[in-house]
Simulated scan of single mutants.
Amino acid sequence: MSIPFGYVPAEQQMRDKADYARKGIARGRSSVVLQYENGILLVAHNASRALRKISEIYDRIAFAAVGRYNEFEALRLAGIRYADVNGYNYDRADVTGRGLANLYAQQLGMIFTDSIKPFEVEIVVAEVGDSAEEDQIYRLTFDGSVQDEHGGIAMGGQADAVATRLKEHYREGMTLEEALRAALLALTEPGGDPLPTSQLEVAILDRNRPQRKFVRLVGPRLERLLAAGKPAGPPAQEASAESAGGGQAPPTAPPTAPEGEIDTGSGE
């Protein structure tokens, strides 16, 4: 039997699609998702003020993505529609991170197999539980593969290098300040300058909040958390500061629970 002109074996097609998608994802900036003592932290290197890489899907569920914005935005909207319909028709408790991960896996797998061009995206669906053991983090790749993750993960850009640095600084049970510092150290190139606040997109799923758990960390609150996460200066500097102030350290304000921003779901 003669082979048609232009025939490409299925195995080669799949390899070419996978290489194409990986190259597209690697061109973007990295994002990290990690657990901390009171929930799940999501941090993205995002220089755009108009586009969101991190969003709320439902009460306890967040969405983070890297790659082509128009493609993962379509997935985000599909997830919101799925969550709203199921939560309205059945019960809000029936909307789960696992269900959303299965939905995305079906869509991505179908696109990867049937379309000429695969989606150049990698996404995370995170659901916060009543305890750290009940937290769920699902990582989905361009071909619909699903991985159930625990602890901290990195995706997009130089994901392997970022994941290695994250593993060095991550530990279970970290405070929010410690987790944020670990995420920033992972996203910062060795010997490079720390990422400016204007290029950070940060959100949390806080298990201690009632009903809606998703909160964006912006402005003064994010700056205070970044400052609190920095390591203390050497004792010599502290001593000199005390001597300059007459032997007394400057008073510090009592700790407070600073404000956060609730995601409206509008993408603005």
Results as ranks from 00 to 15, higher is better:
Gly156Leu: 07
Asp114Pro: 00
Val121Phe: 07
Ile137Gly: 05
Thr164His: 06
Tyr138Gly: 07
Ala161Gly: 06
Ala163Lys: 04
Met155Leu: 14
Asp114Val: 00
Glu133Phe: 00
Arg165Met: 02
Tyr104Ala: 11
Val146Trp: 11
Ile123Asn: 01
Gln158Val: 09
Ser145Trp: 11
Glu120His: 15
Ile123Val: 13
Thr141Trp: 03
Asp148Pro: 11
Ile137Asp: 06
His150Phe: 15
Glu168Leu: 08
Ala126Gln: 02
Leu108Val: 09
Ser115Pro: 09
Glu133Val: 02
Arg165His: 01
Lys117Phe: 09
Asp143His: 10
Glu149Pro: 11
Glu122Asn: 12
Glu133Thr: 06
Lys117Tyr: 10
Ala163Tyr: 01
Ala132Lys: 09
Ala132Glu: 14
Ala163Phe: 03
Ile111Ser: 08
Gln158Tyr: 06
Phe112Arg: 01
Leu166Phe: 05
Leu103Val: 12
Thr164Gly: 02
Val146Arg: 12
Pro118Phe: 02
Phe142Pro: 08
Asp130Val: 13
Glu172Asp: 12
His169Pro: 01
Ala154Trp: 00
Val125Trp: 07
Leu166Gln: 00
Gln147Phe: 15
Phe119Asn: 07
Val124Tyr: 00
Gln107Val: 14
Leu108Ile: 11
Ala126Ile: 12
Gly152Cys: 08
Met110Asp: 15
Gly151Pro: 03
Ile116Lys: 11
Glu127Asp: 06
Val146Ser: 07
Pro118Val: 02
Glu168Thr: 11
Gly109His: 03
Asp135Cys: 12
Asp114Glu: 13
Tyr138Ala: 09
Ile153Asn: 04
Asp143Ile: 10
Glu133Ser: 07
His169Lys: 10
Glu172Lys: 10
Ile153His: 05
Leu108Cys: 08
Ala159Trp: 02
Asp135Gln: 12
Ile153Asp: 06
Glu172Arg: 11
Gly157Glu: 03
Gln106Trp: 12
Phe142Val: 13
Val146Asn: 09
Glu127Met: 04
Ile111Phe: 06
Ala163Cys: 05
Val162Asn: 02
Ile116His: 12
Glu168Met: 09
Ile137Thr: 08
Met155Asp: 01
Leu140Gly: 06
Glu133Gln: 10
His150Gln: 15
Glu172Met: 08
Asp160Ser: 09
Glu172Trp: 07
Ala161Lys: 06
Ile116Val: 13
Gln107Pro: 11
Gly151His: 06
Arg171Glu: 10
Leu108Trp: 00
Val128Thr: 12
Ile137Cys: 07
Ala154Glu: 01
